[in-house]
Design a protein around this nucleic acid. Structure first.
Length: 424
RNA sequence: GGAGAGAUGGCCGAGUAGGUCGAAGGCGCUCGCCUGCUAAGCGAGUAUACUCCGAAAGGGGUAUCCCGGGUUCGAAUCCCGGUCUCUCCGCCA
């Protein structure tokens, strides 16, 4: 959420900034409702003050045994008026918050203006795509040949876009999870967390999935609960409504969780393989920090996610999302894209974002500076470190051999019981 | 699922014949004093949001004693609904 004062005082600038995101924010309604709200608020506060003063006076009179009936009668009118105004205020408040909750974050100054993913600049490329003396197979074919992935039976169990791993495939996924969590906790200072996979509406609202993107979520029938689309949601809500000590920052959490996404609107896209599933595992990284370091924390977050790919020897590139391609809550986002040989393209495997105070304001997460009065909003960041299913797919494709086997990256072998290759 | 108890400031914990309660007291913490050494004592301060005045320091106002609604001139205190926690019984991993 944007700060209401900022929107109020910079209507045109906010409108212009949001326009670069492809959002036509009509803030005229905001302007009129806000004015009405402020006027009613001023009046009601004056009346409440009057009521408080007179009520004290009535109490004093009664204690003294004097008559207070005149005041009581006057206050009846005042209270009635207050009640009317409070109703107005409740309405304007709700309208304002609905408008504000639907506005995306403002882009960071370093974010290039652009309309969609075709305008994302590539800022870094690492590793060389492997050269094959044969036609590289797609990971779903490799998975079928090795009998470690079975999408047909997954469809029987649930439906389209659900994963079913067997044997070395299941083992490899587990190895990747442990590997990633170990790197982030041991080398990058993250606290490991095992959070709930189902969260309530306030949590989803705090991180920005709600109210706008409910159609992207799986919702429980009988409860106002949702399956998490990413561990970002529970991890960022750990400190919702809290005031943290400056000393406690930056605070970093990592968790591996399944992620559930309805993938509404993506029918026909990536219909095969592990790339786009309704359920997938992801190791997530979340940071809470002070505002002055969040730019630097985004860079280190990106580097931490990259580490995994480097250790696994998977070629990748980093792109900086342009204004038109960024997610709702992000001020700045880097995507890491891994090389997928079969399609000959780079595919997103991590997304690292700085949300600045956008989520913190919705979630009411503050901190207190040492020796200073008052509180400030923290900045939150998160990134995938990494999407596990896509990582496994990338390993299958990049490490495939002419004989149909798949070599296991050196760094992963200790986690895979010393296994050196997957063989048919 | 059945029966009961409870939700107050960082923590503990007073506060129900409604007014003098933003809320006693204690602990913790901060600053100062004293003392002087792994202690004690003394004094002061110690919630958040919004808003107004002020250059600032600071001061004024409104709201918040789980949440929402009601009664009332006035509610932490009364009434209704909800949420959560705890105890006992049943059930289940």
């Amino acid at each position: 959420m944007l700060e209401i004062k900022l929107v109020r005082q910079n209507l045109a600038a906010v409108e212009a900034a949001l326009a670069t995101r492809g959002q036509s924010a009509d803030l005229e309604t905001f302007k009129t409702v806000d004015a009405r709200h402020r006027q009613a608020l001023q009046e009601v506060e004056e009346l409440r003050h009057r009521r408080n003063v007179v009520s004290d006076e009535i109490a004093r009179l009664k204690r003294a045994g004097a008559a207070a009936e005149a005041f009581v009668v006057e206050m009846r009118t005042v209270s009635a008026r207050i009640k009317v105004l409070e109703k107005t205020l409740a309405e304007t408040q709700e309208a304002l918050s609905a408008i504000l909750m639907a506005l995306p974050n403002l882009p960071h100054v370093s974010v290039p203006v652009g309309k969609d993913s075709t305008e994302n600049p590539v800022i870094k490329t690492w590793g060389r795509p492997p050269q094959f003396e044969f036609a590289p197979k797609a990971h779903w074919d490799i998975g079928a040949d090795l009998k470690i992935l079975d999408f047909e039976r997954a469809t029987k169990i649930t439906g389209a876009r659900f994963p079913l791993y067997f044997d070395a495939g299941a083992r490899l996924e587990r190895a990747l999870i442990n590997f990633m969590l170990d790197v982030h906790t041991r080398e990058h200072g993250y606290h490991e967390v095992l959070p709930p996979f189902i969260v309530n509406r306030p949590s989803m609202t705090a991180t920005g999935q709600l109210p706008k993107f409910e159609q992207d979520l799986f919702k429980l029938e009988q409860w106002d609960y949702f399956l998490i689309p990413t561990a970002e949601v529970p991890l960022t809500n750990i400190h919702r409504g809290e005031i943290l000590d400056e000393d406690a920052l930056p605070r970093c959490y990592t968790a591996c969780t399944p992620c559930f996404r309805s993938e509404a609107g993506s029918y026909g896209k990536d219909t095969r393989g592990l790339i786009r599933q309704h359920q997938f595992n992801k190791v997530e990284l979340v940071k809470y920090c002070t505002p002055e370091v969040s730019d630097a924390e985004l860079e280190s977050l990106l580097a931490q996610a990259e580490t995994i790919l480097v250790k696994l020897g998977l070629p990748y590139r980093v792109v900086l999302l342009c204004t038109g391609d960024m997610g709702f809550a992000a001020a700045k986002t880097y995507d890491i894209e891994v090389w997928m040989p079969a399609q000959g393209v780079y595919r997103e495997i991590s997304s690292c974002s700085n949300f600045e105070d956008f989520q913190a304001r919705r979630a009411d997460i503050r901190f207190r500076r040492k020796g200073k009065k008052g509180t400030e909003l923290v900045h939150t960041l998160n990134g995938s470190g990494l999407a596990v299913g896509r990582t496994l797919a990338a390993i299958l494709e990049n490490y495939q051999q002419a004989d149909g086997s798949v070599a296991i990256p050196e760094a992963l072998r200790p986690y895979a019981g010393g296994m050196e290759a997957l063989r048919p």
